[in-house]
């Protein structure tokens, strides 16, 4: 992202200063919607029930309280759900890598268009079409509600993404390197393990992180396929929807807690996310 050399190098003239101000003003407008939604989520999570409903809203002048967090964690086994989310996301992204890497490699190396297309169908099919059949299938084999069932279902998300991203990385390796490896007697499988993989570590980190995020975020699969033991965080928020009331406070507390790890991850690994999202799409 560094090659943004403009044909003209701006010098600091009054006009330039004005333009910088305009730029930051536009930037502010671009960032405001995201900022506002997150501000509203976090501030609501810190409000008492009555303050949540007060109009005009108390922007910052409310008495902050952690009651909602306390209630959220008391009423539900939060740690268990957090573990489930993290475990399922980790396992499905690692498995996605293990299975996706060799396929991405041969697609890149041998230009296997047809294989690429057949794997791509997994990305095109609407997820709704999987819910009922997966449930029936997993019930019949006695896996329903289990971690393996959820991890397999989440592979639908993580696996195509991994392949998409990794094909780019394997293609970026000059083919001379692969060929040299073969000539040196590494063998074809050896080339994959000893040359292709070490050269694409960045790619693995990138696709791993993104696969993790999208699995962590997934709602539909866990909504239908998980049970009390394996429920993930995005589904657990709905524990606070009752027949006679919506508990907005604890829901916002949950929403905040679910989102924060992802935001931290973005800040730490911005570069990977930028590359990954770009590559994951372009193909």
């Amino acid at each position: 992202m560094t090659s943004s050399d403009q044909p003209r190098r701006p010098r600091m003239r009054p006009r330039t200063v004005l333009r910088m101000i305009a730029l930051y003003a536009i930037l502010l407008i671009l960032l405001l919607p995201a900022g506002f939604v997150f501000f509203w989520m976090v501030s609501s999570s810190l409000k008492q029930g009555v303050d949540i409903y007060t109009m005009p809203p108390k922007w910052l002048s409310f008495e902050p309280t952690l009651d909602n967090y306390e209630r959220a964690f008391e009423r539900t086994p939060f740690l268990r759900y957090a573990f489930n989310s993290a475990f399922i996301a980790t396992a499905s992204s690692l498995l996605g890598l293990a299975i996706g890497l060799p396929a991405a490699y041969t697609i890149a190396r041998y230009n296997q268009k047809r294989l690429a297309v057949s794997l791509l169908t997994a990305r095109l099919l609407p997820a709704v079409a999987f819910l009922v059949p997966f449930f029936i299938l997993f019930t019949q084999v006695g896996l329903v509600g289990s971690y393996p069932a959820l991890i397999l279902a989440h592979l639908l998300v993580t696996f195509p993404l991994t392949v998409f991203i990794m094909v780019n990385f394997f293609e970026a390796v000059p083919s001379e390197l692969y060929e040299a490896g073969e000539v040196d007697g590494a063998g074809k499988i050896g080339v994959f393990f000893r040359i292709a993989l070490p050269l694409t570590k960045t790619g693995m980190v990138t696709s791993g992180i993104l696969a993790f995020i999208f699995s962590w975020n997934d709602f539909k699969m866990a909504l239908v396929l998980s049970n009390a033991e394996t429920r993930t965080l995005p589904v657990a928020v709905y524990n606070f929807v009752h027949e006679a009331s919506l508990e907005w406070g604890p829901m916002m507390a949950y929403a905040t807690v679910i989102t924060v790890p992802i935001i931290v991850l973005t800040l730490l690994a911005q570069k990977h996310i930028v590359t990954g999202m770009t590559m994951g799409s372009i193909k």
């Binding site: 960032l31 997150f38 929403a255 935001i263 973005t266």
Partner: peptide, 22 residues
């Protein structure tokens, strides 16, 4: 600024949808 701009894309949709609903 760019990292900040990316948040909506990677924040958990099910959680964010609740914020919008509210």
């Amino acid at each position: 600024a760019r990292a900040f701009f990316l948040f909506p894309m990677i924040a958990t949709p099910a959680a964010i949808a609740l914020v919008w609903k509210m």
